[in-house]
């Protein structure tokens, strides 16, 4: 066993542990944090395959942005374990069926005979080879149309999500920064010349 294999087994063990904990811990915040650990370890595994661009992007996008937003939402949940466990037995048969199906699918893919994964080693490459540059070249030459279509689909999804969730209230108030910046002294302050008045003798009223 060389050092790389050792690292691989270490990372895999951590990854499996984290992934199992994601679905077994009670507290959703802990689950989200274990998911972060799983992503981070997964990135480590990719680094072993010399896919440094993908690994770092995984950390940058999923750990750095997606999971932060996820955590943001989960943190604000009212964690009521009784309600979370409600209906567990009711949904169990369907969940087990789906889980078994997924397990079989994964076994087929990882088993390798039909998908050829068993043969995929780290490819040899010439000196001065840059993983990032190669990926960019492929994405923007050979696969430019799929990339652009995927981008458009994502854009549509973003716009749809915003359009579906945006509520405009009639009585909501907002500020227009351009208007605020353009404010002149004359629109805020009015100088009033108050005429001096003659002092009137104050008469004390009886009874006060």
């Amino acid at each position: 066993m060389n050092f790389e294999t050792f690292l691989f087994y270490c990372l895999s063990a951590i990854l499996l542990f984290a992934a199992v904990r994601v679905i077994t811990v009670r507290n959703p915040v802990h689950a989200a944090l274990f998911l972060v650990l799983a992503f981070f370890t997964g990135a480590g595994l990719w680094l072993l395959l010399e896919a440094e661009f993908l690994a770092i992007t995984l950390v940058l996008v999923y750990v750095g942005a997606v999971m932060v937003l996820f955590l943001f939402v989960v943190m604000m949940l009212d964690i009521n374990l009784e309600r979370l466990r409600e209906g567990f037995w009711h949904h169990l048969p369907l969940a087990v069926a789906v889980a078994l199906l997924m397990a079989v699918e994964m076994a087929l893919v990882v088993g390798g005979k039909h998908f050829g994964l068993a043969l995929s080693a780290v490819p040899a490459h010439p000196a001065g080879y840059s993983n990032t540059k190669e990926l960019g070249r492929l994405l923007y030459t050979e696969y430019v149309y799929p990339v652009e279509i995927a981008a458009v689909i994502l854009l549509v999804a973003i716009i749809a999500a915003i359009a579906l969730t945006m509520r405009r209230r009639k009585d909501s108030k907002y500020q227009d920064p351009a208007e605020q910046v353009a404010v002149k002294r004359s629109s805020r302050v009015r100088l009033v010349r108050v005429q001096a008045e003659e002092r009137q003798a104050v008469q004390a009223e009886p009874g006060e």
Binding site: E52, I56, T57, V68, T132
Partner: peptide, 18 residues
């Protein structure tokens, strides 16, 4: 002196928020 240094910096600094 890694080739993806800039990406590494962006990824690592984005972890600070946790």
């Amino acid at each position: 002196n890694v080739d993806a240094g800039l990406l590494y910096i962006m990824a690592i600094t984005s972890m600070g928020v946790y």
